[in-house]
């Protein structure tokens, strides 16, 4: 095993180009477990800790450009306003120690369906900025996950940042685990209201081979909200609409039975989380709308 220690992003890209099998390591929270337990012996480890700008973020007009190694702790503490869904998801990642080391780049690189960031990224809308010596490109989050623990990266590419849409409405994230802290998702659900486009986006974790959106459910809800004038009148979403949305979210799952939970439980739980997160976000939206009206 060789340990490559690039001092800059350019050096990192060059190293990855030279050694496409090199495994990038930043927070180490996935890679080191595999090494400690002898599950993996990469030829090269590519340390990204010395590439300083990976831990930085920029808040732009419409998006946040989040460096791949910005620790979850920073996201949950410093980006709650801009990225409320991802901040909530970050708060559910493992333990404080892990949140101090791990970042979204690791979740994306590993592309495990259980990664906590995925549902929030899917719901918010995001693009993954990847780069190689050949150049840089933005991969839409919907096209990023290509299979179980597989993603759209080429062998010589590294994840540099994620461009996440700043919240224009309430966002929520829920995750089921069989412990009240430090637990891997049995399944997870993210939901974001986008009042500007009058759309709702979702993300489901750990209930399909890849993180997925519940697109049929989104379409149904978008139509129902539009039809009922809900975005304008701020009415309570009728229970039958919420229930159908929840059922469609559950139907979007394609889960398996494993030691963490059964497929049928996962479907059931995604439905419950879909209904609850919709209720929470919508209540919040109504509250904000009422305040705005009152102020006007």
């Amino acid at each position: 095993m060789d340990f490559l220690r690039p001092a800059s992003w350019e050096e990192a890209l060059a190293a990855k180009a030279e050694h496409p099998t090199a495994v990038p390591i930043a927070g180490g929270t996935d890679v080191m477990v595999e090494i400690n337990f002898d599950h993996r012996r990469p030829e090269y480890l590519l340390d990204l800790n010395r590439v300083g700008d990976l831990t930085e973020w920029e808040v732009g007009e419409d998006t946040v450009r989040l460096g791949a190694s910005v620790p979850y702790t920073r996201i949950m503490e410093d980006l709650r306003g801009e990225l409320p869904g991802l901040a909530l998801a970050s708060h559910t990642v493992a333990s404080p120690q892990i949140r101090n080391r791990g970042g979204v780049g690791g979740n994306l690189g590993t592309a495990s369906p259980a990664g906590d960031a995925h549902p929030a990224l899917l719901a918010a809308g995001a693009e993954v900025e990847v780069e190689s010596v050949r150049g840089s490109r933005l991969i839409p989050i919907d096209a990023f996950y290509t299979g179980v623990k597989r993603n759209a990266l080429a062998a010589d590419e590294l994840i540099r940042a994620v461009h996440i849409k700043k919240a224009d409405g309430p966002q929520q994230f829920s995750k089921v685990g069989t412990r009240n802290a430090m637990v891997i998702a049995v399944c997870a659900f993210g939901l974001a209201l986008h009042p500007e486009t009058r759309t709702v986006r979702t993300g489901i974790g750990s209930a399909a081979p890849t993180p997925v959106r519940a697109k049929t459910a989104e379409e149904f809800l978008n139509a129902a909200l539009e039809e009922g004038g809900f975005w304008d009148n701020g009415k309570i979403i009728t229970p039958s609409v919420a229930k159908q949305f929840a059922d469609l979210c559950a139907a979007a799952c394609n889960p398996i039975d494993d030691v963490r939970g059964t497929a049928s439980y996962r479907r059931h739980a995604v439905g419950i989380m879909a209904r609850r997160t919709l209720t929470w976000t919508w209540e919040s939206y109504r509250g904000t709308a009422a305040t705005t009206e009152g102020a006007a």
Binding site: G27, M32, N100
Partner: peptide
């Protein structure tokens, strides 16, 4: 200054 699990930090990363 930041609390981390030292089992998940590769030795080479602490240079």
């Amino acid at each position: 200054g930041v609390p981390v699990c030292s089992c998940l930090v590769a030795a080479g990363q602490v240079e």
